[in-house]
Design a protein around this nucleic acid. Structure first.
Length: 266
DNA sequence: CTGGGGATGGGGCCC
DNA sequence: CGGGCCCCATCCCCA
């Protein structure tokens, strides 16, 4: 799965012109709804996930392109990269509440979506569903995806936005941030899943490059990019073709080499 | 076409 | 348990 499924799709294929963004005060708000349909507002996720980076949001809550308004599809035709299953319930934030029982018509029937048992009340249903829940003590937690089949399988915390499963709640919460994108750049409005990702992004605005190469003094905004750069100073690169022994500074280059150059089968 | 830089994502680990 | 950081990976773009 491409790792870029979260954010990049919101942009055009062209690299964003940050300098342009910075020079424009007005267009941002006009552009944002088109380009940055946040998966979810960085509103509270159980009151905890809004980072300090969002304190100066460009948008107000009311002006934000709430991902997919329940009854007004707006202009999301070209967007909708994330199939958030139930964004309409804006108050219901993720945080592992995956598979919140769909309860087709909860008004009068509290039926377990997994085993079909009917309960007399929502509370009773919740209690019952805990018997399916791998986490046990928290009704918000994710249910074991295989629970209907077996209660003996390893605990699995399933994301309600995608098929991913994790064996810890923490890992799931971390993953869910990639859907909610609570860290928003105040300059361009781009949203990120983690604060440090946002910090790295902010460097693209500020031009800060804290990582410098000891060999050529070239500076980089990202440590990983410096590491990749350091490979270019090495005669023997880190990634070697198993067939021709040629070395490459990057895995991607090796990959290109193996599929297109001399070693198509390597 | 290739190599390199920029930007960004995710999982894991540590505190 | 959450935040921060590290490492690795990938995509895009450009020289």
């Amino acid at each position: 799965m491409p790792r870029s499924f979260l954010v990049k799709k919101y942009f055009t294929s062209k690299k964003p012109n940050y300098s342009e963004l910075e020079s424009q005060n007005g267009p941002i708000s006009a552009m944002v709804p088109e380009r940055y349909p946040l998966a979810e507002l960085p509103t509270k996720e159980d009151g905890s996930l809004v980072t300090t980076y969002t304190s100066a949001l460009v948008w107000t809550t009311s002006s934000l392109p709430l991902s997919f308004p329940p009854s007004s599809p707006t202009t999301s035709s070209s967007i909708a990269p994330l199939d958030l299953s139930s964004p309409s319930s804006s108050g219901e934030e993720d945080e592992g509440r995956t598979s919140d029982p769909p309860s087709p018509d909860p008004s009068d029937c509290f039926q377990c979506a997994h085993c079909g048992i009917s309960c007399s009340s929502r509370a009773a249903l919740s209690r019952h569903q805990l018997s399916h829940c791998s986490a046990g003590t928290n009704g918000n937690l994710v249910e074991n995806s295989n629970m209907a089949d077996s209660t003996t399988t390893k605990a699995a915390f399933r994301c309600k936005h995608c098929p991913k499963e994790y064996n810890s709640l923490g890992a799931l919460k971390m993953h869910i941030r990639s859907h909610t994108l609570p860290c928003v750049c105040t300059t361009c409005g781009k949203a990120f899943s983690r604060p440090w990702l946002l910090r790295g992004h902010i460097r693209t605005h500020t031009g800060e490059r804290p990582f410098s190469c000891p060999h050529c003094n070239r500076a980089f905004a990202d440590r990983s990019n410096l590491r990749a750069h350091l490979q270019t100073h090495s005669e023997v690169k880190k990634y070697q073709c198993g067939t021709c022994s040629r070395t490459f500074s990057r895995m991607s280059l090796l990959h290109k080499h193996t599929v297109s150059s001399c070693c198509p089968t390597a």
